[in-house]
Amino acid sequence: MPGMAAILRLAALALLLGFLLMPQSFAPLFTPLTQYGAPPIYDQGNLLTLALAHLGVVCCAAAASTLVAVGLGILVTRPSGAQFLPLSRTLVNIGQTFPPVAVLAVTVPLVGFGEKPTLIALFAYGLLPIFENTIVGLQTCPPQVLEAASGMGMSARQRLLSVELPLALPLILEGIRLSLVINVGTATIGSTVAAKGLGEVIIAGLLSNNNAFILQGGLVTGLMAILLYDALAGLERRICRTAHLE
């Protein structure tokens, strides 16, 4: 079975790279979906550039979400910050209740069209899984291990950096993975406010009634999300294995 999974993984990666680097060679596959001689492959921009821009926005947003969510998670699990736990939890929850399209819509007048509204929407939407997983990870460190760490004379900072965070790392990574994958899909809506990304391909398809474009945009985004999910899950397993957790 693991051999099978590896083959599927490689095939998906090859398909994605092949399509992004040489899209025209896939033209015969998409031609049946077009009408009246419309182009079968997206021709209003370079697919590879768009995919990279898409990934860039998603990664920037994830980096910002991670920084804020992990920082906040650490703060509210310290004795001095415990009073902020309920409020932070409510705020982060609100971040995900706010529909990303609505965030885009209301941030456009504040920051203008382009990547910025998308970054803000993805940032707010991606906080919740990372924040919750950070908290669970930090709160479920075995109490004896923490007791031993303090008992041996680690300062609060040393204990956090060399015991608590390493033990919580697999869960934090899982949160980042969930957040990233949700946002690879969500980022497509950024194209409605002129952010560069794969949403452009889909929207061009919707506007010109070209199913081939819609399918291309969707497939590339989906493949990227799946590969990212798979790669991060692998990384988590590896860290768990080398750190001998679970």
Binding site: V184, T188, I202, G218, T221, I226
Partner: peptide, 18 residues
Amino acid sequence: LNVIQTIPAIALFGILMV
């Protein structure tokens, strides 16, 4: 079901039109 979730909403809407 998880794979379905990774397809962006706009694309799934579009793909289903066909």
